[in-house]
Computed example of a mutant assay.
Amino acid sequence: MTRPPTAAQRRVIDAADPVTGRLRGTETQLAALVKRGLAFRHPRPPHDHFLTPAGHRIREAAAQPPPEPAAGTSATGTSATAGVFAARIGGEDEPDAAPGPARVREVHSAWQGLLELRRMTNPGGATDLPCDWERTHLVRAAALALEAAGHRPAGRDTDGYRVRATPQPEAVAVHEPDGGALRACALTLEKAGWQVGEHTDPRTRARYLLASPRRV
């Protein structure tokens, strides 16, 4: 059985950038995480360290709510007061009010961080194609692309986009009751490097998008 990270290593993992997984720590701490397969050192300057998928899983497991979440904890597994950035996927737990300046700055910073992660991890430094992090966090990645472009998520009393997982590998569904807004979401995701198709739910006849990260 793999030995769990030390307390010092956990602090480094927990302090990683929530989107890019970029790490800050001493050379000894970072080297230890690399040795355990929880981080990797980027081959290009400035040779920053990033969490591997295993490292991301450890970080996210610590943020999961208890089996019976307390009031104020959302269905997506994040607390409204946790202070950790999470893209808004749309739903009753999302705020109905328009995002304030602080949220706008957070979303912009997260999107720029994601573009930087693409640059540092994609072959050739391509920023127009989704990276491995996005392929393992499909719902969050698609929601971030939409929110960063100014689309509004659905709230308890407001319409907007809703991003949901699907049984299909590497695909998410995007629901938006307004047809024009749905098409605008499709354009945003295509611009962000996703393949998008519009479909009709056979039961409700509602239109929705099926989106997957492009590979080429």
Rank of each mutant, 00 (worst) to 15 (best):
A143K: 11
N122H: 07
I58K: 00
T136W: 06
V107T: 10
A80L: 12
D93V: 07
P65M: 05
A145W: 10
G72K: 03
H108P: 01
G150K: 10
A142L: 00
W133C: 02
R119I: 05
A71R: 14
A148Q: 02
E68G: 02
R103T: 12
P69E: 01
A75G: 07
L51F: 07
E116G: 12
T121G: 01
G155A: 08
A61H: 04
R57N: 08
G100N: 13
A102R: 12
E106Y: 03
A82D: 15
L138H: 11
A98E: 12
G155S: 09
A98G: 06
P53I: 10
D132Y: 07
T73N: 01
E94C: 15
A143W: 15
Y161G: 06
P53C: 09
T158E: 04
L117T: 05
A149M: 12
A82C: 11
T76R: 07
R140P: 00
L51W: 13
A97N: 11
T127A: 14
R156N: 13
D159A: 15
R140T: 11
A145V: 14
R59K: 13
A80R: 10
H56G: 04
A63N: 07
C131F: 04
G100Q: 06
W133Q: 08
D128I: 03
E106R: 09
H151W: 03
R118N: 14
G113H: 00
H137C: 03
V84Y: 06
G125E: 05
A148I: 12
H137F: 05
H56P: 01
I89H: 05
E106S: 13
A63Y: 08
R152M: 13
G91N: 00
T136F: 05
D128P: 04
A97L: 14
D132M: 07
A97D: 09
P101T: 10
A110N: 04
Q112P: 00
A126P: 01
L117A: 15
G150Q: 03
P69L: 05
G100H: 13
G160V: 14
G91V: 00
L51A: 06
V139Q: 07
G91S: 03
H151G: 02
A148H: 14
P95I: 10
L129N: 04
R135H: 13
D128S: 15
H56K: 02
W111R: 14
A110P: 00
T136C: 06
A71V: 12
A143P: 03
L146P: 00
T76L: 14
A87F: 11
E94D: 15
G77S: 00
E147Y: 01
G90P: 02
E68N: 12
T78C: 03
L114D: 05
F85G: 10
T127I: 15
Y161E: 01
L114M: 15
G72H: 10
G155T: 08
T52L: 01
T121D: 10
P130F: 02
G83A: 01
A154D: 05
A110W: 11
I89R: 14
E68D: 14
I89N: 00
P153F: 09
A148T: 08
R59S: 12
W133F: 13
R118M: 12
L138P: 03
E92F: 10
D157N: 13
T81G: 10
H137L: 07
P69I: 01
P65N: 02
A145N: 12
A145F: 09
R103W: 14
A149T: 05
E147K: 03
L114C: 01
E106Q: 15
A80P: 01
V107W: 10
D132H: 15
E68F: 15
W133K: 06
T158R: 15
T78Q: 07
A63L: 15
